[in-house]
Amino acid sequence: MNAPSAPRKIRIATATLGGCFGCHMSLLDIDERLLALVEIAEFDRSPLTDIKHCGPGVDIGLIEGALCNAENVHVLREFRANCKFLVAVGACAINGGLPAQRNRFDVGDILKKVYSDAPDGRSRVPNDPELPLLLDKVYPIHDVVRVDYFIPGCPPSGDALWKFLTDLIGGRTPRLDYPQFHFD
């Protein structure tokens, strides 16, 4: 594609909150175009790099997954603070998706059901401070931070992600072609 001869590479960060990594798999689905992408971009925090924190000066932050727990909120805030453009990728980030199907239940009832209904009747809801606590509901990310762009799909196809990224990097308003526009 028409890679701009930028003085520095575009920095991209990615993260999965409450999601299935399907959107990240789609990112890998751009296949050999990954090579073209790394010509013009480098990855900051991402499951692809294993960098643990999103550093300052990131151009594009891609967020997959919904907000399910306290850690998700910390990661999202870190991305919002460090990314020029924050992008909600996939159904979960955009409207809660599959994780949000728990919203019809009280989170306390869910925890009790999962951890307390042991045969001996003892409560086993874990209290380890290392474990992030669940939010009362699952939230789409735009309920908590401002989001600049949305790429729908479950997951969005590799083509959709490629079209979006090349549009954005190329300075065009990102726009998906009809066959790339999917909520499923």
Partner: peptide, 25 residues
Amino acid sequence: FCPGCEKSGRCKLQALAYDLEMLSP
């Protein structure tokens, strides 16, 4: 929740959202 709906792909609400480029709710 479109990914879990059997109507997906032939749903008018979803199809209009595609056609009118509704990217998020």
